[in-house]
Every structure is written in structure tokens, then in C-alpha cells.
Write a protein that binds this DNA or RNA. Structure first.
Length: 896
RNA sequence: GGGCGAUUAGCUCAGUUGGUUUAGAGCGCUACCCUUACAAGGUAGAUGUCGUAGGUUCGACCCCUACAUCGCCCACCA
């Protein structure tokens, strides 16, 4: 018989186990089987990522699901991969170049991209290796990257199809602009954070009254949070119903500092209650103003360069950074007595989700996807519950976003990513910068949208052709992931087998970025949902509730935890403390749960293996030979298997972990293992020990893959060579024995009661108690007599009498278990006086409970309307309490 | 402005459709034990007006209403 090492050492086993799994190709899912598939799509971590606790939680959940389903006999596939993270990766590589004193512009596009690919070769799979350390059972052969050829083809295909349907367009709109990254962002990529800023109240003089002689008459006060944008002002807007500004009809204002003429416009969207009720209108720098501009036919004046500095429009301010400019303008206004006041003002300011710089709403020509037509079906499938969210409350969040969806800005002014598959003919279009080409008109002369560069212009036949310089949003490739990874647009075997997939496990942060868009893409291009269940887990936070992030330095690194306690302990701990959809507050101590549990499991298994003898294991378990404890533990294993399966089906992972913890620790180890030491029928006991251990290991395997496999490999050989692909335990009817189970529970209660008496009455550990059982019914009597040995051994006593007791033993205290009275003579062993108060207190507590029950039972409607069982339960409760009081009083009187 | 979550033992949290929970776990605490699988352990124990105030019900930690505190998300809060 093989043995386990004396000490549990996760590091020794984890790496080897993982290697042996992958070399045996156990995670590979085949597309040509008749088995039903179960597929999970991994949220592709981005290649600049480093494993953090969020990944650890996310991947553990997915691994549990996929291992469980694999054991249930599904052709289970967990599709791994990474995304190219356009902006993030470009930033990383640019930083690297900066150390060498080089800018990407110095290298040029092609050379720079070479560098990015080199970087990707070197570091891009870091996260993948880290996921392996967690035990993730992905089908690594299928690993995909969003910039792979196949996936890039899918991106082109989708772009072209959407373009041809008129769902992709190019146009001038206000977008979120990151001045540091130098690119447009989508709405979702601008993170709004509440910032305490200033609201500046500025006097805008009425034309002809620039001297401001009359207070409150010669000027209008406007309030703004971004004074620097006044350089692009073209008008001032007020609400048409606002009495204060009626006199302004037909008048003009003069923009301070630049002396530009400003129209006065009247628009109902202006809120008279905000600020002064007068709004400066800057169409090129604010989305609201942009809309106003369209409605009132205003000019767009863009006062800012792409890098956030002021351009020539700003005259004296040109060249200043936007925030320097703000200070300068405020100062100048003060000097000219045009600044009325400033107020503190809390408002949400957008920040770049990659570099955290404040984003600038900026008018710019970009590519967009029309989302409303795509959203329609995506709303339907969720409303019809074809796709379900767990927890359900996210449905509302999803629908709310989908119903108010806005067009998606997909072009990025960076180099790393999928180039927009559009070509322009310079001769036809006569542009300076391809980015500025306007294609909104009906005849798209000189514009070619296709997979490859055309050899000549389709309009003029010329060869002066250039591709659009921009690349696509990374999410424009990620949203295709559930089918592009299977070879779409080709209808591959894998696609047919695994699409739609079953579950998507992710965090709330990317519901909009990714989940929602995948649903739209799946429906649009595959005509079917991409997955059935969406499980949204909580965010991992530190113990103060702050989201863990590298920049805050509050991270608990999963790799550190793995090297301290092992991957299994990490997994088990994090799953145990994460209830469905709730955020996780983490501290290092929490990993002790898993560490202690692994240790317990290891030692228990070690003990079992140590004692197994091959000759005892031949043949099946003979049912007639089973002891009460055998029946109980087998029954309990059945129950556990059922409960764990049910919990997993409902995505209640912490519950499943808790059930296993309780069963393995408190039933198998605490009781069955101890009982087994006294067994006389070694053969049966060892068979049961082994059977239950194997069942437990299987149930635990999805949660703690390494330790369970390691122990499994040390077990006597069976047909199931690997626990990874062993069959998931089901309740076995022949071992279902409710009655035996209850008897054993009673026996445990009796043993506990006797131990309790010793402790309660402060009896020394070496005193041997003499027990008298008043067991009138045969059932209890039989149980006690049949298990005499256990009671005596575990409670440190001898059984003096079992049966109907006519006269209680002298100076004896007692306890009550169900209807069995246990008497223990303590004559001379203890000092009763000390204990009296305690007992009296107990008695009055119980009397209180009885009063409560009497109130209920005295209530007519309770008796009428409550189900019989409930009333009965109350009655029996009352009887139990009364009996307990009687016992306690007896105990006191025993020493009178 | 809208939406969502949390509030349960000293700490961190479970508690699935209201009645098998007279409210559970882990940690911590108290007492005893190194019993030949495990001291990262064993045995026994103490600790809760389940945020506040009402309501529905025969019955509420669970459902409804209001309030309080903390946190998150969304929104064109100039």
C-alpha cells in the first residue's frame, strides 16, 4: 500500500500533478463525441495582466464548474486565451521605449508593432502560466489570442458585414478623449469618479456694455466647472421661460478675454435652477452643448490639441496645458473683475480606464456602431430568460443599460490592434489626413471596405490608396470571442459542438464592456445566444472595503498565498468565504480555513492509507456486515453528494464547500475515523473507510484539485486512474438508511451528553464514570447495547445498567437525550454548592421558553390555522423542556 | 437624480421558497487534554433585544412601509 508523506507539502505535489494531467491530455475536449458538451468561455485576461485575487476567484469558480461537469460525463471545455488590450499594451511598450529615450513616432508604425509583438512573445503568457498554478483545467491546446489570424479574420468579417448593413458609420461627434493616450475612448472606458471641483461664476458682458457700469444689468453671469473651455464658447443658452433673461432677446454677449461675439439662445433643456440658469455653450467640448449646437445651428470651435494643450484659437493661452490654462484664465478673470465667485462643487469626472488621466469630451471624427438595432434582440433573450443572470438582480442592470444604449465608438488612435479594414483613394478624396475623410455622403467614392488592400481604386482605378490609420477597440474583437475562437465565420466542428456555450463567469465590471456586447454579437452573427447562464461574482476587496489594486498597494498576491499555503488552500478558502454575488473582503488570515482543511484531509487520508491491508479490500461491501456507524457514514455520504450537487447546480459554491467541510471534518474525521479504530470487523471497516474517502475526494476534487489527485494516486488501484476524469458520485440507494442514520445521531448525542456531564460537573479526566441508562423502549436499548463499546470508549465510562430504572442511583446527576435518561452517580466526586446557581439559572431560562410556547398554544387561531405538524412540534418542544427542567431539578435534589 | 447591495456572537461572515435553525460557521475567548492521522489537533463551554420604528401573518432574520448608517453602479449635476 502506498503512503502519504508525514507532512502535507503542497509545493511538492502541485507542479508534478499539473504536469501529469496535461501530459495525459485530460483537459482536452473533443468535438466529435456524442457526449453532451459543457462549455465555459474564459473572460480573456489581457496580456499586460498579472494574476490578482479577482482572477483567482473567477478562475476557481470556473474550474469548479468545468471539473464538476467533466466528472459528470460531459464533454467539458474551458476555452482559454488572452486579449491584446490595445491601449494598455501600447502604453506598456511605450514606457519601455521611453527608458531608452525613444518615442513610438521615432520608430514608426511597423517597427513599433514589431516591438509590441516581441513584448507579447516575452510577457504575454505570464498570466497563462499563473492560471495554471491555480489548477485551471483549460483546454490549453485551444488557447487563443485576439490578434491571432483566425480571430482577426472574424473581426474583419464583422466590420464589413456591419458596414454593409449601415450599422457602422464614421462621423463627427463628441467622444471621450484621453489626452495622455492620445485616443478616443468609448463611454464605458471613461470611468466616472466624484471629484470635488469648483464652480466658477463668470460675468459675460452684454454687447455694447463692456464697461459693466450697471451692476446686474450689463452682463450675464454664467457658471462653469471648466473655465478653460470658454475659449471655444459660441453662445449662451437660457431657458425660454426664465424671466430673468427675457430682456436678452435679440441681444448678444461678448466672450471675456477673447472678445468673441456670443449669440443668446433659448432652449428648454437648460435648467433654470442650476447655477445662474445661464449656460455657456461650447459645442466642441461638451456633449450637451454639442446637441445644443446642432439644434441652434452653431459653429463648433475646437480650442484644444489632441494632447490637451490649447491651440491657436486660444490666442494668448495657446500652448498651455488645459489645467494650467484653467488657472491662468481664472487669474485673468479675477484681475478684470469678471469672476463673481467660486463655489465648491461635487461632480462626476471621467477618467481614462487605462491611465486614469481626466478625459476630455472632444469633438472628433470617429467610427461608430449603431447599437439600438443590435440591442433589440439582446433585450428579448434576457427577458425571455433564455439567458439568465445569477444573482438575478443583474438582469435589471443589464436591461437598463441595453434599453438606453448609445452608439459605440470603436476607433482608436493607437497602433496596436486590428486596423480598420477601410481604404481611401487619395486621388478621389483629396485629403490631407486619412483620418479626416468624410464618408457620410451617399456616394462613397474612393472608399473601399474589404479584407485586403485593393490593388486599385474601385472608383478611379488609381493606385494612390491608403488604409484608415486607426485601429479598433479591443472589445470589438472580444465581443466575438464565444464564436471567433471556434473558427467562425467557418462553420467548424467545434463551433457546432460547443456553441452556444453554457456558462459565463465574470465580475460586474465588465457586464457592459463584454457580456452585453457578446450577447449582441452572438445573436447577430450566429443567430443564437452565446451562453445560457451568466454568473456574476463579487469584487475582491481588502478588509477596509477598498477594491484591491496594484496602485493602491493593498493587494494580497495570490502567488504569495500559493507559496504559503498552496493552491488548494487558496481555492478552498476563497470559495468558502464568497457567498453568491457578494463582494469579498479579504485578509490573509482567511486563508487559514483552507490551509487547516487541507492539512486535516491529508492527515486523515494518511491514516486511512496507513491502515489499509490489501487482503481486506477484496470484494464488495457486504451489506449485512455493516455496523451502525458504517451505515450512518455511507448514508451521510449519499446525502452529501446530493447536497453538493444541488448547491453547484444553483451556483452556490460557498454552500457546497461548507457541506463538504462539515462532512469530511465533523462526520468522517471526528466520528467515523475514531469509531473505525475500535472496529473488530477490519475488513468491512476498511472497505467503508476507503469508499467514503474516495467519495469525499471526488466531491472535493473540483474545489481542491491537487491534493485530491495526489491522494487518489496513492490509493489502491481501480479502473479510475485519474480523479479528474472519474465519475461524479451520486446517491447509492442501497446505502440509504435513514433509520440507522438517526440512531447513530442519537448515539452521538448520548456520548456528547456524557462528556458534557463530566465537563459540566468538573469531574476529573481520570475518574471513570458509571452510567445508568433509563431506556424504556427496545429501540434505544438495542442501540445502546449494540454500541456499548463506543459509548464506554468515547465517553470514558463503564455502562452499569441499561433498561427501565425503578429507583435512581444514589447521588446521581442526569442528562436527557430524546427520551433516554442518563444517570451518573457522582457521590464524593464533586462539590455541589458551586454548581447550584448555574443550574437554577438554566431552569429559569427553560421556564421562560415554556411560557412562550404556552402563549402560542393558547392562541385559538394558531391551533386552527397552523399545520398539524407545527402544532405537534410546539407540543413536543414543550414536553422536552419540561423534562429537561425535571432532570435539572432532580440533579439538584440528588445531593439534598 | 435613478438603481442596487449591506446592517446577524468580540471579529469576519453564512442563513436558498416565512414553520425541522428553541439563530449557524470560522477566527478569537474559557476549561481540560501532547488519546500512536492531525496542536494547522481533540473534548466540552460561554457569548446574539438578527440596524431602528411600524405593518402583514396563527407564526418574521426572512415579506411590506418608513427611517438611519456604510458601500457600489448608472446618468449630458453646465
Amino acid at each position: 500500500m502506498k503512503e502519504l508523506s508525514t507532512r502535507y507539502n503542497p509545493h511538492e505535489i502541485e507542479e508534478n500533478i499539473y504536469k501529469s494531467w496535461t501530459s495525459a491530455n485530460l483537459f482536452h475536449a473533443k468535438e466529435d463525441t456524442v457526449k453532451k458538451s459543457y462549455c465555459i468561455v474564459i473572460p480573456p485576461p489581457n496580456i499586460t495582466g498579472v494574476l490578482h485575487m479577482g482572477h483567482a476567484l473567477n478562475n476557481t469558480i470556473q474550474d469548479i464548474l468545468v471539473r464538476w461537469k467533466r466528472m459528470q460525463g460531459f464533454e467539458a471545455l474551458w476555452m482559454p486565451g488572452t486579449d491584446h488590450a490595445g491601449i494598455a499594451t501600447q502604453n506598456v511598450v511605450e514606457k519601455e521605449l521611453a527608458k531608452e529615450g525613444v518615442k513610438r513616432q521615432d520608430l514608426g508604425r511597423e517597427k513599433f508593432l514589431e516591438r509590441v509583438w516581441q513584448w507579447r512573445e516575452k510577457y504575454g503568457s505570464t498570466i497563462v502560466h499563473q492560471l495554471k498554478r491555480l489548477g485551471s483545467s483549460c483546454d490549453w491546446d485551444r488557447t487563443r489570442f485576439t490578434m491571432d489570424e483566425g480571430l482577426s479574420d472574424a473581426v474583419k468579417e464583422v466590420f464589413i458585414r456591419l458596414y454593409e448593413e449601415g450599422l457602422i458609420y464614421k462621423g463627427d461627434y463628441i467622444i471621450n478623449w484621453c489626452p495622455r493616450c492620445g485616443t478616443a475612448l468609448s463611454d464605458e472606458e471613461a470611468e466616472h469618479r466624484d471629484i470635488e471641483g469648483m464652480l466658477y461664476y463668470i460675468k459675460y458682458p452684454i454687447e455694447g456694455k463692456e464697461k459693466l457700469e450697471k451692476e446686474n444689468e450689463d452682463y450675464v453671469v454664467i457658471a462653469t466647472t471648466r473655465p478653460e473651455t470658454m475659449l471655444g464658447d459660441v453662445a449662451v443658452a437660457v431657458n425660454p421661460t426664465d424671466e430673468r433673461y427675457k430682456h436678452l432677446v435679440e441681444k448678444k454677449l461678448v466672450l471675456p478675454l477673447l472678445k468673441r461675439d456670443l449669440k443668446i439662445i433659448f432652449d428648454e433643456t437648460v435648467d433654470p435652477a442650476f447655477g445662474t440658469g445661464a449656460l455657456k455653450v461650447t459645442p466642441a467640448h461638451d456633449p450637451v452643448d454639442f446637441e445644443l449646437g446642432i439644434r441652434h445651428n452653431l459653429e463648433n470651435i475646437n480650442a484644444m490639441n489632441p494632447d490637451g494643450t490649447i491651440n491657436a484659437i486660444g490666442e494668448d493661452y495657446a500652448g498651455l496645458d488645459r489645467f494650467e490654462c484653467r488657472e491662468a484664465i481664472v487669474e485673468d478673470l479675477k484681475q478684470r473683475k469678471l469672476l463673481v465667485k467660486t463655489e465648491k462643487h461635487l461632480h462626476a469626472v471621467g477618467h481614462c480606464y487605462r491611465c486614469h488621466v481626466v478625459v476630455e469630451p472632444r469633438l472628433s471624427k470617429q467610427w461608430f456602431v449603431k447599437m439600438k438595432p443590435l440591442a433589440k434582440e439582446a433585450i428579448g433573450v434576457v427577458k425571455e430568460e433564455k439567458i439568465k443572470f445569477y444573482p438575478q438582480r443583474w438582469t435589471k442592470v443589464y436591461l437598463n443599460w441595453m434599453e438606453n444604449i448609445r452608439d459605440w465608438c470603436i476607433s482608436r488612435q493607437i497602433w496596436w490592434g486590428h486596423r480598420i479594414p477601410v481604404w481611401y483613394c487619395k486621388d478621389c478624396l483629396k485629403y490631407k489626413d486619412a483620418r479626416d475623410v468624410d464618408i457620410t455622403g451617399p456616394d462613397k467614392k474612393g472608399v473601399y471596405v474589404g479584407r485586403e488592400k485593393p490593388s486599385k481604386c474601385p472608383t478611379c482605378g488609381g493606385s494612390n490608396i491608403e488604409q484608415d490609420p486607426d485601429v479598433l477597440d479591443t472589445w470589438f474583437s472580444s465581443w466575438l470571442w464565444p464564436f471567433s475562437t471556434f473558427g467562425w465565420p467557418e462553420n467548424t466542428k467545434s463551433l457546432k459542438k460547443f456553441y452556444p456555450t453554457d456558462a459565463l463567469v465574470t465580475a460586474q465590471e465588465i457586464i457592459f464592456f463584454w457580456v452585453a456586447r457578446m450577447i449582441m454579437a452572438g445573436l447577430k452573427f450566429r443567430g443564437d445566444i452565446p451562453f445560457k447562464d451568466v454568473y456574476i461574482h463579487g469584487t475582491v476587496r481588502d478588509s477596509t472595503g477598498t477594491k484591491m489594486s496594484k496602485s493602491l498597494g493593498n493587494v494580497i498576491d495570490p502567488l504569495d498565498i500559493i507559496s504559503e499555503v498552496g493552491s488548494d488552500a487558496l481555492r478552498f478558502s476563497i470559495i468558502s468565504i464568497t457567498s453568491q454575488g457578494q463582494d469579498v473582503f479579504l485578509s490573509k488570515e482567511k486563508f487559514e480555513i483552507g490551509r487547516n482543511f487541507s492539512n486535516k484531509l491529508w492527515n486523515a487520508s494518511r491514516y486511512v492509507l496507513m491502515n489499509l491491508k490489501e487482503e481486506n479490500l477484496r470484494g464488495d461491501i457486504e451489506k449485512e456486515k455493516l455496523s451502525l456507524a458504517d451505515k450512518w457514514i455511507l448514508h451521510s455520504l449519499n446525502e452529501t453528494a446530493g447536497k453538493v450537487t444541488a448547491s453547484l447546480e444553483a451556483y452556490r459554491f460557498n454552500e457546497a464547500a461548507g457541506i463538504l467541510y462539515d462532512f469530511i471534518w465533523h462526520k468522517y474525521c471526528d466520528w467515523y475515523l475514531e469509531v473505525s479504530k475500535l472496529s473488530e470487523d477490519k475488513e468491512t471497516t476498511q472497505k467503508v473507510l476507503l469508499k467514503v474517502l474516495k467519495g469525499s475526494l471526488k466531491l472535493l476534487h473540483p474545489f481542491m484539485p491537487f491534493i485530491t489527485e495526489e491522494i487518489w494516486q496513492k490509493m489502491p488501484e481501480t479502473e479510475e486512474k485519474w480523479i479528474v476524469i472519474s465519475t461524479w458520485p451520486k446517491a447509492e440507494k442501497i446505502f440509504s438508511d435513514e433509520k440507522a442514520s438517526q440512531s447513530m445521531e442519537k448515539l452521538i448525542k448520548m456520548i456528547t451528553a456524557i462528556r458534557n456531564i463530566r465537563s459540566f460537573w468538573n469531574v476529573a479526566a481520570n475518574e471513570e464514570l458509571k452510567i445508568h441508562f433509563n431506556a424504556e423502549d427496545k429501540e434505544h436499548k438495542d442501540v445502546i447495547e449494540a454500541n456499548k463499546l463506543y459509548i464506554e470508549k468515547f465517553a470514558g465510562c463503564v455502562i452499569a445498567f441499561v433498561g427501565k430504572i425503578a429507583k435512581r442511583p444514589e447521588e446521581s446527576v442526569s442528562a436527557l437525550v430524546d427520551n433516554v435518561r442518563i444517570f451518573v452517580p457522582l457521590g464524593g466526586m464533586i462539590d455541589i454548592k458551586k454548581e447550584k446557581d448555574r443550574i437554577n439559572k438554566k431552569i429559569s431560562e427553560l421556564e421562560n421558553c415554556i411560557r412562550g410556547i404556552d402563549n402560542k398554544l393558547g392562541n385559538g387561531s394558531f391551533l386552527e390555522r397552523a399545520p398539524k405538524e407545527v402544532v405537534e412540534k410546539e407540543r413536543s418542544k414543550r414536553i422536552r423542556y419540561e423534562e429537561q427542567i425535571k432532570v435539572l431539578k432532580d440533579n439538584l435534589s440528588a445531593f439534598d
